[in-house]
Design a protein around this nucleic acid. Structure first.
Lengths: 333, 333
DNA sequence: TTGTAGGCGTTATCAT
DNA sequence: ATGATAACGCCTACAA
């Protein structure tokens, strides 16, 4: 593998000149530039990225830490990040923390030790305090799906409260009055906010929140199914089930079917997130869109702008959920 | 950040000694080892991975190139790879090629330029010839989901023909005689092999393959739906639709419903791959399991064994599909 | 505009 | 077993 030395020798210029054209520095005469390029070409020169990193103290790698690498959410996220990064000649190093606190901390250390220039995290086992502390370190950290006021410019988050509000408002507008709510685990910020929005919509319509029609799930499919089971046992009729995410909504649909109820005829269902399989469900799931792609893209752009000093990127931190109307909600009179 | 120099100074030993304990070399006295460790501890020393890479010519990074980062398949794959790699202290650099030939080639170059110690690819736009040529380079390459005889020890593949055979055989055993087949694009190896297996099962049961009940899709959801449309127009009755993957199966289910057909009452459906949302469909999809997790894990292990010389790993190249029985197939008399 | 020289933090090769 | 010392390939003041 040819080095910068050989290029400089062949081109008949100094080492630094080669380095300069390599890095698009100004103040290089067109002539030497040509000579260098020709030499590089002839030698099939490929810069050694490791050597570059050592000398420049930039690895051009961005660490991405997520809870899991599979699942409908993280794939979208990774995809957006990778596209954005690669356009800029950077690369993504991925790691999973498996929602275990120690494991997620290990993941972060792993990435830091890899000399990542910055880290993007989307996890839930780490406390705000830890993240704040972390962000004081020398490796910039941006946070997806979470708002931590102290470092809000590094957070990319959605207005979950608004999402919860809009979902419930829509259902009420469709004539539903008895609403069941299957929530995410309430120790999670997003689950909480979505529930708040739900309550606000209820309030606004002079409907009252009924504890008996509430079930706290865990954002996983099974808890949607279990939740319906639980709710149905109360013998309190409801005509719509509002689920705090699509996974639970898909579980809820199964649960309703277990009890021979048709969707949306006997019970309407709405989800949250608009993961791609929401389209595959039957009936197709009405849900709130969570623009994870856009958010992930922005997190990458934040890094380009603040770490690599790209001046021409625009960054937005707060995102808005939108209603996606499909087939799982029926209008009642 | 403390360097190896400061450690050596504080420990009162030479640079090389520090390096030795860092790399678990033999021939270091317990005493110096202790001194070094203590010094490292005191200084909070963290090895600089870039410097290590430069000196050792190993980046400890493995490139992963896939067509897309999202979708049900790649997430599982990435997840398995990352787990395996990280256990060994290596990391994964991910890239997408978007099923575009040039883009996939770029992706490979990108990873090579990143000094990846090895590359794992799962793509379909690159020809066998290209991959063979690539594998002659200095960066080891392993291939997922494809068998290229010339480099078969670096390929991790499934017996697609057997999968196609088993799926069809099962359906025939359930009493079905008029089978529709929705295939993947036949320029792809796996689509072809699955079809071959289908034909073998047909043959064995003295059923004959009917061109009118065949539709070539593209492995995407929509083509399942379109396929059913197309097939139904022929006015040739069939009681089961065999789909070459789960995505098309989910589309086919929609297509059947478009025509007011119930599943599996009016038509049974079987898929292939057992992606995780197969469970979410209604009815739950009977399908062939594709052990992508296991395969991805093996590809990572191959690298640990052959590139990093771990001696204690076992590697298997060929995998077997298995029938997963759920709800989408009805027995007919 | 161009070139020189020192440094980035380790590993590896020799001696000792 | 331990210690100098030379790579590793590039970047970046600084000098010219």
């Amino acid at each position: 593998m040819a080095t910068i030395y050989e290029v400089s020798a062949l081109a008949g210029v100094s080492l630094s000149s080669v380095s300069r054209v390599l890095n698009n520095h100004e103040h290089v005469s067109e002539k030497t530039k040509q000579k260098v390029m020709a030499a590089m070409d002839e030698l099939g020169y490929r810069p050694n990225s490791v050597a570059r990193s050592l000398a420049s103290n930039r690895s051009n790698s961005i660490g991405v830490l997520v809870s899991e690498l599979h699942g409908p959410f993280y794939g979208e996220m990774l995809s957006s990040i990778e596209i954005e990064l690669r356009k800029a000649g950077k690369h993504a190093v991925v790691t999973a923390g498996h929602s275990v606190e120690q494991s997620e901390k290990d993941g972060i250390n792993f990435l830091i030790d890899r000399n990542c220039d910055a880290i993007i995290i989307l996890i839930d086992s780490l406390s705000d305090e830890f993240v704040i502390e972390l962000s004081k370190g020398s490796t910039p950290v941006v946070i997806l799906n979470r708002l931590i006021p102290e470092i809000k410019d590094k957070c990319f988050y959605i207005d979950n409260e608004l999402g919860g509000y809009l979902a419930t408002k829509y259902i009420i507008e469709q004539g539903h009055k008895n609403l069941a709510y299957i929530s995410g685990p309430l120790f999670k910020q997003d689950a909480n906010e979505r529930l708040d929005g739900h309550k606000r919509a209820l309030n606004e319509a002079n409907l009252k929140f009924d504890d008996e029609l509430f079930y706290e799930g865990d954002f996983l499919t099974t808890s949607g199914r279990v939740g319906i089971d639980h709710l149905l046992k109360k013998n309190k009729p409801f005509t719509a089930a509002i689920c705090a995410n699509d996974e639970m909504a898909s579980g809820a649909m199964k649960g309703l079917r277990d009890h021979n109820m048709l969707i949306p005829k006997d019970c309407s269902v709405i989800g949250f997130d608009n993961v791609y399989f929401a389209n595959y469900l039957h009936p197709e799931l009405t849900t709130m869109n969570y623009p994870i792609n856009e958010m992930a893209k922005m997190s990458a752009q934040w890094i380009l702008k603040n770490v690599y000093k790209h001046s021409d990127v625009f960054v937005n931190n707060k995102f808005t959920p939108e209603l996606i109307i499909r087939e799982s909600i029926k209008k009642v009179e």
